[in-house]
Design a protein around this nucleic acid. Sequence first.
DNA 1: AGGGTTGTGGGGAAAAGTGGGGAAAAAGGG
DNA 2: CCCTTTTTCCCCACTTTTCCCCACAACCCT
Lengths: 140, 140
Amino acid sequence: MFIGESPYKVDDKGRVPLPPKFRRELKAGMVLAKGLEKCITVYPIAQWEKLSESLAAKAVGGASLRKLTRAIFASAFSASFDGQGRIVLPYALREHAGIADTAIVIGANRTVELWSEEEWKAEKISADEQAAKIMEDLGA
Amino acid sequence: MFIGESPYKVDDKGRVPLPPKFRRELKAGMVLAKGLEKCITVYPIAQWEKLSESLAAKAVGGASLRKLTRAIFASAFSASFDGQGRIVLPYALREHAGIADTAIVIGANRTVELWSEEEWKAEKISADEQAAKIMEDLGA
DNA sequence: AGGGTTGTGGGGAAAAGTGGGGAAAAAGGG
DNA sequence: CCCTTTTTCCCCACTTTTCCCCACAACCCT
């Protein structure tokens, strides 16, 4: 389970550290893909395989499913940590998320997401407004 | 079950003791999250994992589910006791609750809440005023 | 009155964030 | 095909922050 929110510098080489708390769950390997929103989504390898299977299961899906499959898989990169717990963000993904020299790393339960400061600020505000409702529904 | 209300000092490092009576139930671990009101909510780890599961179960949820997942998990931090029974309050949460150098620790049945003095004073008054009415609505 | 527990404070060691350099591999041109 | 240039990857070093341990003082219970 990934939780928390923290800002990290992206250096000239496109490297970003991930929070130490996340590293154990990602050490086995991870896949970076375009997020459905303007962000980068990081899947633990096991989680990615599950997603891959559940898309393949709907083999005979329509054109829209094929489109989604392409969009996700074509933009995906596998990544791993260097000695300092950092990963390299491919340029294509950085651009999609609008990430320049700072990335906000957030835990989103089963996955990790990387946002630019601006996009995250906006997302956070609109997300906060909705959060209260479900929390109450779940009786938490 | 958590009950009671007591004030504690928050030191320069953001540390706060929790009442000894609460420690046994939280020793296994806890998660701090933004409260729905201007406070910090402390969930026993088991409680939080239940929430996590029920969100993950709705597997391929839509955009609004992703948004909620973000709001809930990004603003959360895991915490545990140091040798003196204290936890560290992340800066982001302290700010949300308006907590400076004193925190009021409240037992709220299944969870614990941390309030600033001012916010708690206001909340308590309005809670007292409405308690009877709410009780009736609940048919208690 | 005494011992144990609790609130409060501070210091030191370990880890994390950040940046840069050098070697190996890849790509491109002669 | 070989040499040159560029890129990628890995390792090293420094600074800051975090975490953990220790210490004192006040309170409570016995």
